[in-house]
């Protein structure tokens, strides 16, 4: 399925979308990647419905409970596919500022992470097989804190590599120990 260009604007927000910063979105290909998980759910739904039909044909079991459950699962999968996944993916933003990196995520539950470059210990670029095929990667910033959740998924591979190199250079210049 061709990637749909879905751009949903984020509401203005003094805390989570600080005006003045150069906020950048992630690649829409992340929607495709996340939809693979939804596909699994959809397949489970279809399997439930098929099982219902088979059971009714082979025994006296009623068709409706399994068919209903399958339809419910399909409804959830459709909602995820067309509403939730695009909205969640389009809510990712990151901004490189002079001395720190901002990452925001989420619409219903919002999160903003501020990581000063001097606190970065490790910068990881990772890609699972699906994202490799799509040509996207995840950049993760590791600090000395286990609570820091600084992850930017769905960056085009070359953008991710450039970002990693820039961050590493900035981190090098500003690193301070514990």
């Amino acid at each position: 399925m061709a990637t749909l260009r879905i751009v949903i604007d984020l509401p203005a927000d003094p805390l989570f979308l600080e005006p003045g910063a150069d906020w950048r979105p992630v690649s829409p290909k992340l929607i495709t990647e996340r939809r693979y998980a939804v596909l699994v759910i959809a397949v489970v739904g279809v399997a439930l419905m098929v099982l219902g039909v088979v059971l009714q044909l082979t025994s006296a079991a009623s068709l409706w409970p399994l068919l209903g459950a399958g339809l419910g699962v399909e409804a959830i999968a459709l909602t995820l596919w067309f509403v939730v996944v695009p909205r969640m993916v389009s809510s990712w933003r990151y901004a490189e500022r002079a001395q720190d990196l901002l990452i925001r995520h989420g619409r219903v539950i919002r999160r903003l992470t501020v990581v000063p470059y001097g606190r970065m210990q490790v910068i990881e670029v990772s890609a699972n097989p699906i994202s490799q095929r799509l040509g996207i990667a995840t950049v993760t910033l590791v600090t000395a804190s286990a609570n820091t959740n600084a992850k930017i998924p769905g960056l085009p591979t070359e953008v991710a590599q450039e970002l990693r190199d820039r961050l590493a250079a900035k981190g090098e210049a500003m690193t301070a120990g514990l």
Binding site: F16, R110, L112, V114, N147, T148, N149
Partner: peptide, 22 residues
């Protein structure tokens, strides 16, 4: 190490947020 702001659904209705220091 880093600063995190978090806003749950109810907090959003009330225009509140929780600030964490990692």
């Amino acid at each position: 190490q880093s600063v995190t702001a978090h806003q749950g659904w109810l907090q959003r209705r009330l225009s509140l947020a929780t600030v964490y220091v990692d």
